[in-house]
């Protein structure tokens, strides 16, 4: 009996339990890039949200206020990411974070608000409503993937509303635009001192655009407005700084202009979602990361509705029985 028990224990030990054991989070690393007077870009990994990157896939921007303190534009996926970002901002700007602007509702940009007093967190009213609707669902999904990285992160609703137009925070002059298309509420800031457009996820750069809450017509409209803004450079929501200010806008537009007809043609050819997700991606997008991944996600977002629009009724109730 003893012998057998030992054998049983041996078998258990031989199974790959280690692979299923709790893995603890690492530490977030920040590599701030000075992109103008008193403005730093903190790049996210150009990857999907996976445990290995702690969900730190979105860009964040730190702006120094002439009267002291810092402004953040987006604050990452988790309490701990945002705490680290705030410490970095304090070091770079020489004072505490006075204001956090949220570009839109998505968790890779927004859940870091858990680190701040809600009163200093500002977003478009639409974004607040969307976070109220989807925030806890996002948090569940992020905890499932990121586990320990998310420890202590709770959904905080922004306490301040952004009104489009000129804004001054600690002497730093910004202009706020209320746009839409990537989500129902996309906040864009233009920093006067550096001529930088902070585009949020309306613009992706060398990284395929994500469409979970997208309205493609509205998105194109917003891109046209961004292209017409007087600016020198542009920070996308994902991907590197665009020093030209226009290339990333054009690239995002190019992807959306390819994606929508490609999906419509797939429906018209009778393809299934698996086949549409395997469609060839044009060579000109080869420099973009995550193209296959985002195409498959976009198929999931749009395909069923496109079929409802494009396939004819064939049932008896429609006179076809």
């Amino acid at each position: 009996m003893t012998c057998t028990r030992r054998a049983a224990l041996g078998l258990i030990a031989a199974t790959p339990i280690a692979a299923h054991a709790e893995t603890f989070a690492g530490a977030y690393a920040y590599d701030p890039q000075a992109i103008g007077p008193g403005i730093w870009l903190v790049r996210g990994a150009d990857e999907a949200i996976v445990f290995g990157n702690g969900g730190a896939i979105a860009n964040a921007v730190i702006l120094a206020c002439p009267q002291g303190g810092a402004i953040l534009f987006d604050c990452g996926p988790s309490l701990r990411y945002a705490q680290g970002l705030a410490a970095l901002a304090r070091k770079l700007a020489g004072g505490p974070v006075r204001r956090v602007f949220l570009s839109h509702l998505h968790p890779d940009h927004a859940l870091g608000t858990a680190a701040f007093d809600p009163a200093i967190v500002a977003a478009l009213p639409t974004t607040r409503a969307e976070l109220e609707r989807d925030g806890n669902g996002f948090a569940d999904a992020m905890y499932r993937i990121l586990a320990d990285w998310m420890r202590g992160t709770a959904v905080i609703l922004p306490g301040a509303s952004v009104v489009p137009g000129p804004i001054e925070v600690g002497g730093r002059k910004l202009t706020a635009l209320s746009l839409a298309g990537h989500s129902a509420g996309d906040l864009v800031l233009v920093d006067e001192a550096s001529g930088t457009v902070l585009a949020g996820d309306l613009v992706f750069h060398d990284r395929a655009p994500a469409t979970p809450d997208a309205d493609l017509a509205a998105w194109r409209n917003s891109l046209a407005k961004l292209a017409a803004l007087p600016h020198r450079q542009l920070v996308p929501g994902h991907g590197p700084l665009d020093p030209t200010g226009q290339a990333a806008i054009a690239q995002t537009r190019d992807w959306l202009d390819w994606l929508e007809p490609a999906l419509q043609q797939a429906v018209a050819r009778g393809l299934d979602m698996t086949e549409a997700g395997a469609l060839p991606i044009p060579e000109r997008f080869a420099s973009m990361k995550l193209t296959r991944y985002e195409l498959q996600r976009s198929v999931a977002h749009f395909y069923a509705a496109l079929e409802q629009q494009h396939l004819p009724r064939i049932d008896a109730a429609a006179g076809n029985g």
Partner: peptide, 20 residues
Amino acid sequence: GEMRGALWREAGDTRLRLTV
């Protein structure tokens, strides 16, 4: 019960797509 669908003649098969 609203059904949508179509048939496509393809090399080697006739493709049927159906949603309900």
